[in-house]
Design a protein around this nucleic acid. Structure first.
Lengths: 204, 204
DNA sequence: TTTACTTTTGACCCGTTGGTTAAACTTTAT
DNA sequence: ATAAAGTTTAACCAACGGGTCAAAAGTAAA
């Protein structure tokens, strides 16, 4: 039973994840989730009392998954340049496997800004920030970067990786018109973005 | 009457724009729009038969507004570097005045990908692309950029400008934790992003 | 002032949707 | 075997939400 339990609850959770990511909280229908899981709507409410609760469970899992993907950058013992290359390769591969995550996450974040604090409270951003900064203090000086420009640099790096998926529809449409394949474009991007950033921060 | 007509219809349109941008198509309620416009729900349907129709009107207007902001870059007679600086200043200022546009636009685009073709069909992307490329053929050669890397470069530029607003919630939250103001961050970004890109494409 | 027309409204309709309930069915423990 | 506990279902409910309608209010021309 604990067996079957897990199975049913997990089936529900996976179905919910799929539907919520595709349609968003507002667009998703409980009946749709139930059908996807191959069960009754009442059973859905038996495992997750309300739509809100179910959504929260899914969203938190997605948030954890996303944040986890940023962590290695702080741990790996690599030079700054190597870290940048490492990040784009790893992160873009992750997004290739989960192409709808950025749009879903960003949208739900905007829909309900109060989540931000909750998610951010779980991570000591400032600590990580300082850690990264002190790890590469020497290099950064070499690159002519101050502590002040760190937010600009880091958001730029994330932007270059995430944006193509957040705006996938339009980008795919534009690329298509010029005979370029999106997957190929992303593959190229893994190295392009890294070299782009490295060159941008290098001394002339 | 034609006077009052315009007034009412315009009030409705503006109210609809506000509500749709804030809540999205799925989250918006006709009653909410009516209240915002200070009118009856029936009157709403008198001017715009259905929710879909009203939404389409709003969305098309937003799309035009956004696309219009990209056009000048192709027309201005400036060097590539000047164009890059011009773009970031102009575009980020535009987004400061319309901070919710990116999230709304991207989300609705993902929700209904068929819009993409319709919007893209209105613009000769490939022509503009070539125009931009031929305008700066000499410089690009100088910068060591080929025609192949143009998509990577252009999407990167857009990403650096749009992403901070598409992910505003999170970025604002992170910045806040380190005592940085979002508006200040954007102000800094106008020059940072431009210099970042210019340096990235410059020869060593 | 009457007539013809447009604009605005309150009341109503009805399909959808999140959520409930009571009973049937399974499993586990005694 | 049987009682107790957990699991699953069909049927149901209330309210929400887009959309309609007929009548009232306003406007302009004859």
């Amino acid at each position: 039973m604990a067996e079957n339990d897990k199975q049913t609850e997990e089936r529900i959770f996976e179905a919910a994840t799929d539907v919520f990511i595709e349609k968003g909280m507002d667009g998703a229908r409980m009946q749709d989730i139930a059908s996807h899981a191959g069960i009754n709507k009442a059973l859905l409410h038996y495992y997750f009392r309300t739509k809100e609760q179910l959504f929260n469970a899914v969203f938190e899992m997605v948030a954890r998954k996303i944040i986890k993907k940023f962590a290695p950058v702080f741990d790996e013992n690599l030079s700054l340049e190597a870290k940048i290359r490492f990040f784009f390769k790893e992160h873009l591969t992750f997004l290739q496997e989960n192409p709808r995550l950025p749009a879903f996450f960003l949208n739900e974040m905007n829909r309900n800004p109060s989540r931000i604090k909750k998610i951010l409270s779980g991570v000591d951003i400032d600590k990580l920030w300082l850690k990264l900064y002190s790890q590469h203090k020497e290099e950064l000086k070499n690159y002519n970067l101050t502590e002040e420009t760190m937010p600009q640099l880091l958001t730029s790096i994330v932007a270059l990786s995430v944006f193509p998926f957040a705006a996938r529809g339009i980008i795919e449409g534009v690329l298509e018109k010029m005979g370029i394949d999106f997957d190929k474009y992303i593959e190229t991007r893994k190295t392009f973005a890294a070299e782009f950033v490295i060159k941008a921060i290098s001394r002339p």
